[in-house]
Design a protein around this nucleic acid. Structure first.
Lengths: 138, 138
DNA sequence: CACCGATATAACCATTATAGTTACAACGGT
DNA sequence: ACCGTTGTAACTATAATGGTTATATCGGTG
């Protein structure tokens, strides 16, 4: 199966760098640390900006957080870069045959069960802040 | 972002049908209820067989569970059809620059945090059994 | 045995997400 | 005015997905 995109882990990496060195690092430097192309970094930065987590100084370069690192959770970052249809992690097949007893009921039952599972994951992500992460390698 | 494959929800649908009508339904009928091509059903059935959840009578047709529905959880089904590298739901970018303080530490820290989040989701999936599901539309 | 409906599997296809890349416009301080 | 930076568009290769056709095999029935 396909894993959740590495955009997420790269975004955490990016924000960690900014948290540690606000306004001192360029996209070029970040790309060097993440070990990828600068455009990939800028794309993710665009999502983080759209989510209101960071801002960037165009022209001159350098980025800074719009919230303190203890108020940015992994869930905030996850939501910023992983845009899902209707915010549903699990895909559910549609158009089940409504003339079948199982086909009729399966969608709504699964919908609620799977959204519970998704919530459990998200609650765990919400428990960890950026400052807790950076504390582990500073 | 890409959602988790509908293979999972289709697998739950399939097993629900088998739980309700053991040995009475063909792949053709299941395909009609799921509203897809029979080959798609057989592919998923193959995964479920490999996981030891069901068995099928070749030639004559019909499938049956190898465990009672109260001993099959959503996690069992999820694991049967969603094969992940090293069982990791979250992809993590590799080859971070080890000469950077953040790049050096990010991978292992993220690995443990994200596996916690994955576990939280899986624990929730493990709480629901096939019999609990079918009870809701029978 | 011959047939027929069923399962098993390979092969192919169109669609989509992803991550990387090149190219170019715009910004802003020196 | 220059130059390093950010912002985007466009293109690419790769891979997962879900569907489809085709073919082989199985097993009970006439």
């Amino acid at each position: 199966m396909k894993q959740i995109s590495t955009r997420f882990s790269m975004a955490v990496h990016i924000l960690s760098l900014i948290a540690v060195n606000a306004n001192e690092i360029t996209g070029e430097y970040i790309a060097g640390s993440v070990n990828t192309n600068p455009v990939v970094i800028r794309r993710i930065m665009g999502l983080l900006k759209k989510a209101g987590l960071v801002d960037v100084r165009p022209g001159v370069g350098g980025a800074f957080l719009l919230r303190t690192p203890d108020r940015i959770t992994l869930l905030d970052i996850y939501r910023a870069v992983n845009l899902l249809d209707d915010n549903r992690l699990f895909g559910i097949h549609e158009d089940s045959n409504i003339r079948c007893q199982v086909g009729r009921g399966i969608e709504s039952v699964l919908q609620s069960e799977l959204s519970e599972a998704q919530s459990a994951m998200e609650r765990r992500l919400a428990q960890t802040t950026l400052s807790q992460l950076t504390a582990k390698f500073s």
